[in-house]
């Protein structure tokens, strides 16, 4: 009896590992093809000859092909995603704290309006938001990519629910000790919110990092493109050079995977809480 049970368990792990390998196979395929000899790119499931040619070509440009600003785009992605995510975090924490812990006149109205806006289909805003950015002179600039994505209502919603669950007594006690609202947030509220902060940060950063439509509309000049937009632009024209396209994909995917894995443990703890 014990023997069969053990055998069954071994089999379960085998299925789980095989399924996991199938699920992450596209990533494996991407990495292998970025290092594959150009004769074998997209020709073999597992290439046999490897070279660094794709990366050299990507960074240096080939004959008759102008080198594209991949490295520059890589840093643009960091600047835009980093600043945007940071602003989304700060604004969400501020607004959520006000909604959860600072009784003031008109609070319920703001709360209801946020819920209304959350369920409002955002597609209607695409064209006029572009026009707003154009009119205030932020077309083709970092701010144009950052500001319309400087606030996440989902993050406000998540933080508001979390902050509401923090007992008022903590905050009252700190107030009696003469702490200011900012001190309370920094010293009491934020340390209690570490795991949910990790979850919100990761989701916002992942979404911002892989954004295409908005950045594509705002960034026009070569030195403004984010890596995702540049990759998208080169999708067709570089169709004859799949190797470098895989190398660029690795460049785009690797940072986000590293960041995710760094926070993976905290992320999981936070998800347990968020989903309850």
């Amino acid at each position: 009896m014990g023997g069969t049970k053990k055998k069954g368990l071994w089999f379960r792990y085998l299925i789980a590992v095989v399924l996991l390998l199938i699920m992450i196979f596209p990533y494996i395929y991407m990495v292998l093809n970025s290092f594959a000899d150009w004769d074998q790119v997209d020709k073999k499931l597992f290439p046999t000859e490897y070279t660094l040619q794709s990366y050299q070509w990507l960074l240096g440009g080939g004959e008759a092909v102008i080198p594209r600003p991949w490295i520059n785009a890589f840093f643009n992605s960091f600047i835009v995603s980093g600043a945007s995510t940071l602003l989304m975090m700060v604004t969400a924490i501020m607004v959520a704290y006000a909604l959860a812990k600072m009784p003031f006149k008109g609070r319920d109205t703001i709360n209801n309006f946020i819920l209304f806006q959350m369920f409002f289909p955002a597609i209607i805003l695409l064209i006029p938001t572009f026009l707003v950015i154009q009119r205030i002179g932020m077309y083709d600039s970092y701010w144009g990519m950052i500001l319309p994505k400087a606030m996440s209502l989902w993050a406000v919603f998540m933080y508001t629910n979390f902050f509401k669950a923090i007992p008022d007594t903590f905050i009252e006690a700190a107030k009696l000790d003469g702490a200011s609202e900012l001190q309370i947030m920094y010293k009491i509220v934020m340390p209690m919110s570490k795991s949910i902060t990790t979850v919100i940060f990761l989701f916002l950063f992942m979404e911002r990092w892989t954004e295409l439509l908005w950045d594509m509309l705002v960034a026009k000049s070569d030195n403004m493109l984010t890596l995702n937009v540049l990759l998208s632009q080169m999708f067709g024209p570089y169709g004859g050079y799949p190797g470098p396209m895989y190398a660029a994909s690795v460049l785009l995917t690797l940072p986000i995977i590293i960041i995710f894995l760094l926070f993976a443990k905290k992320f999981q703890e936070g998800m347990q809480f968020t989903l309850k």
Partner: peptide, 21 residues
């Protein structure tokens, strides 16, 4: 965590891989 990794892929990258495949 492993099964979550595909969520990190940019749509551009997954499209590129699928186009190749």
């Amino acid at each position: 965590i492993g099964f979550f990794l595909p969520y990190l892929a940019s749509g551009v990258v997954s499209s590129l891989i699928v186009k190749g495949l």
